[in-house]
Every structure is written in C-alpha cells, then in structure tokens.
C-alpha cells in the first residue's frame, strides 16, 4: 500500500478497519437496491418470457443463468467498492501545520480544505452505528461556513488516535485564540 503520509497521519493514523467499514456501509445500499430490482423486474421478465412462444425449458434456462449472474454482479460491485475505498484510504491526507489545518481527500474528484486555526468554531467527535461496531471515531471540525462542515473531518481513527487528535486540535485552537484579557476589554 502506497499511503499518502504526512507527519500528522504517521502520528495519528487512520485505521485499516475503515476500508472494511466503508465498503460494508456503502455496499448495503447496493445490496438492498439489487434485491428490490430483482423483486420488481424478476416477475416482469418472467411474464414477458411466458407471453412469447418460447419453450418452457428455455425460459427456465434463462432464469437459471440470471440467478447465477446476479450474485456475481454483486460480487463485482463489492470488489470494485473495496478497491475504491482502499484507494480513498491511501490518498486521504491530513496535516496539522504551524498555521493551518489541511485536509485533502477523494482520489477521483479531489477536495482540499485549508483552515487557519483561529477560524475553527468547534471540534467534535462522533460515531455512527458501523463506527461503534468497528470501534472507530470521526473527528469533525468546522468554521462558520457550511462547506467546512462538509469537507473538514478526519474519519475512521482508532480511539487513541481520535483522542490524541482532539487534544492536539483543542490545544492548537486554544493557543491561537487566547490572548491577554486587557486586549479584549479595552
């Protein structure tokens, strides 16, 4: 694996479980979709075949082939999803620099966000259902804008790394925002 490393990612790495988690969570939608397509279109195709004057044995043969290829289609989608998630995992880049936080992700349509520490409005850590199953944590950040909430998050770290990242980020933000009291009161 050729991972897009930064000093921060070396110290607080993403978990490899993230690839499996993302593969499963995104394949579930596909599986449900394929299931319903099968339920809706299966009888229609069967009906169409029976109205044509085709021998029954050939219809059964076609249906058998469909039954055989359907799971294989699913497996191909699964494999492609896994490869894509692996690629995504490899190219995920986040770096904590002196002045800015930089997050860059998505191998096909890259999105890179740069946030100065002073502008960070909140830092929060969350887990969804699959994160709980795999023991992963997402660290989110946001400035006062909508798009920052969409782009700025570090997903799929282990507990230690998530805690470490949170502490580090809070420390950075605190150091940057705090200043002598007289200056604020004036």
């Amino acid at each position: 694996m050729n991972i897009n490393m930064s000093p921060t990612r070396e110290k607080y790495p993403l978990s490899r479980k993230k690839i499996i988690k993302k593969t499963i969570s995104s394949i579930i939608g596909t599986a449900v979709g394929l299931f319903f397509i099968g339920i809706f279109f299966g009888p229609i195709i069967f009906g169409m075949l029976t109205t044509m004057t085709i021998p029954y044995s050939i219809i059964l043969d076609i249906l058998g082939k469909l039954m055989f290829w359907y799971p294989i289609l699913f497996l191909i989608i699964l494999a492609l999803t896994y490869l894509y998630q692996r690629w995504y995992f490899e190219t995920y880049f986040y770096d904590i620099t002196e002045d800015y936080l930089i997050i860059k992700k998505d191998p096909i349509t890259p999105k890179e966000i740069t946030i100065p520490w002073e502008r960070i409005q909140d830092v929060y850590v969350d887990q969804d259902l699959f994160d709980r199953i795999f023991g992963l944590y997402d660290v989110h950040l946001s400035t006062a804008t909508l798009a920052s909430g969409i782009h700025a998050h570090i997903d799929g770290t282990e507990k230690n790394a998530a805690e470490g990242l949170r502490t580090l980020l809070l420390e950075k933000v605190k150091n940057r925002i705090s200043r002598p009291t007289q200056q604020i009161i004036k």
């Binding site: 096909i108 349509t109 890259p110 999105k111 100065p116 502008r119 400035t143 006062a144 804008t145 920052s148």
Partner: peptide, 25 residues
C-alpha cells in the same frame, strides 16, 4: 475569510482545471 477549498470534479480532471473556493461567514 473563513476557509479556502480547492476542488475538482470529473470534467475538471479531464480538462486539468482547479476550482478555488473562498468562504467568509
């Protein structure tokens, strides 16, 4: 200015273009 985002969609990748997004609050 709150943050700066650089993005590319598929057609941007093909044409070799980059979008610079600047946001304030």
């Amino acid at each position: 200015i709150q943050n700066i985002i650089i993005t590319q969609d598929i057609l941007d990748r093909i044409l070799g273009l980059h979008n610079l997004v600047i946001e304030n609050a």
